[in-house]
């Protein structure tokens, strides 16, 4: 049940694109056609589902404060968490390279359709963001980390699929010349993000405890929002 909750939460409520703006660069650059969007989206799901649990293991057994205690008493006080950026990005870059080689060997047709996107993924913020959020939210088990990675990937996939479909249609609309292309895509994404905010109450159901688990960024805006409503109540 907990896993299912985390799964849906990472797809809809904490959607990579709409709630945290991760992976925006490739999201905007590769969303002109649905078919390429599907290819990139699938690659992101794949890589996220592999790298988040891997980085969880790294974090748990090497990087965290006291994580090295399995080596012996002397190592228990070590805190290597300042190395986490470099370790995470190295894991991601290696995994992407590995996935590329494996896919090329076993499925040339998939490789041809994913080909150019795979190297791009190494620098997709959504991938590193997944690992960093996993670390900062202190996800407790390997299973949850896997589900979180998978869910975030699917959320990203949904987002890029939706915007690609909209962009294909919007080509036939009469958009003001200066807004065409990038401008209107930004505004549509903003509107979609507002839509996705409505998922916010889906799992919490007014339960204050689960609400507090959200990201710092969302928290601050929540707090500000509450300030606004509080001032309104005081009037």
């Amino acid at each position: 049940m907990e896993l299912l909750e985390l799964f849906f939460k990472s797809i809809f409520i904490d959607n990579m694109v709409f709630a945290t703006f991760l992976g925006m660069c490739s999201y905007l650059a590769v969303s002109k056609k649905v078919s390429t969007a599907v290819g990139l989206g699938a690659a992101v799901i794949f890589v996220l589902a592999i790298t988040v649990p891997l980085n969880w293991l790294l974090d748990q057994y090497i990087l965290q404060e006291g994580a090295l205690s399995w080596l012996g008493e002397d190592f228990a006080s070590y805190d290597l968490s300042f190395l986490s950026f470099i370790m995470f990005i190295a894991t991601i870059a290696t995994m992407v390279q590995l996935v590329e080689i494996v896919v090329e060997k076993f499925s040339p047709s998939l490789y041809n359709s994913l080909g150019i996107f795979l190297p791009l993924i190494a620098v997709n913020c959504a991938i590193l963001g997944g690992s960093l959020f996993m670390q900062s939210r202190e996800i407790p088990t390997l299973g949850q980390a896997t589900v979180y990675g998978l869910g975030s990937g699917i959320g990203w996939f949904l987002a890029i699929l939706a915007i690609a479909a909209i962009r294909e249609k919007i080509r036939y609309s009469n958009v003001p010349a200066a807004l065409r292309g990038l401008g209107i895509t930004f505004i549509i994404t903003g509107l979609m993000a507002i839509g996705f905010m409505s998922f916010g109450g889906m799992l919490t159901g007014g339960d204050e405890e689960t609400k507090e688990e959200k990201t710092v960024q969302v928290e601050t805006s929540k707090v500000n929002q509450e300030l606004v409503t509080n001032t309104k109540i005081e009037e």
């Binding site: 703006f21 807004l179 209107i184 895509t185 930004f186 505004i187 994404t189 903003g190 507002i194």
Partner: peptide, 10 residues
């Protein structure tokens, strides 16, 4: 809220 950043950039 985060969506407004997108709209402002747009």
């Amino acid at each position: 809220l985060s969506p407004m950043a997108l709209i402002v950039v747009g």
